[in-house]
Simulated assay, not measured.
Amino acid sequence: MLLSHESPLLLPTELDSIHNYYEGMVFEALQQQLPEQFGNNEYIADIACVALNHLPPRYIRHDVDMAFYLSPNERQEMLEKVNQAVTKAIQFVNDSQQEYE
């Protein structure tokens, strides 16, 4: 019996290649905005989750695919959205941590 999320046509290795294109962009923005905190995995992961939840999903299999489909203007818009989402997420996580201290 197959569950609704199981497919006989896709192998696990094929599914492993699917990811949200914004993930890499968010981690790059975090590394630029918080280089001194980048080793603090829990803090960075919390911020990344908040930022990603404020961005539309862009699921792809290969990053190179996006290079062919994005115009320079679209890429710039995405970068601006990512930087705004990361900035807001940093503030949100910092404010939340202060509430619990």
Rank of each mutant, 00 (worst) to 15 (best):
N41W: 06
E42P: 00
Y59D: 07
A29S: 14
F68E: 11
N41S: 13
I18S: 08
C49M: 15
R61N: 12
A51G: 03
H62K: 14
R61F: 15
F68A: 11
Q33M: 14
N41D: 14
E42K: 11
I44P: 02
L34I: 05
Q32Y: 06
A67I: 10
Y69D: 13
M66G: 05
H54V: 03
V64Q: 14
R58K: 06
H54Y: 12
H62V: 09
R58W: 01
N40M: 15
L34W: 09
P35D: 13
L55Y: 00
P56A: 14
D65M: 11
N41C: 08
N53F: 09
Q33K: 14
D16Y: 12
G39H: 04
Y69T: 14
C49E: 15
Y43T: 06
A45K: 08
D63H: 06
Q32T: 01
M66A: 15
L15H: 04
Y43S: 10
Y69S: 12
D16V: 06
N53E: 12
A67F: 07
A67P: 01
A29M: 07
H54E: 14
H19S: 09
R61G: 15
A51Y: 00
I44Y: 02
H62D: 14
I44E: 02
F38R: 10
E42Q: 08
Y22T: 00
Q32N: 10
E23Q: 10
L15N: 05
A51N: 03
E36M: 09
H62G: 04
V26L: 02
Y43V: 08
R61E: 14
E14H: 04
P35Q: 07
N20P: 02
V64I: 15
E42L: 13
Q31V: 01
F27D: 06
V26H: 00
G39F: 08
E28Y: 09
V26A: 01
Y21R: 03
N53I: 05
D63N: 06
A48Q: 04
D65E: 10
C49R: 15
F68P: 01
A51V: 01
P57V: 08
M66F: 10
F68T: 08
V26R: 00
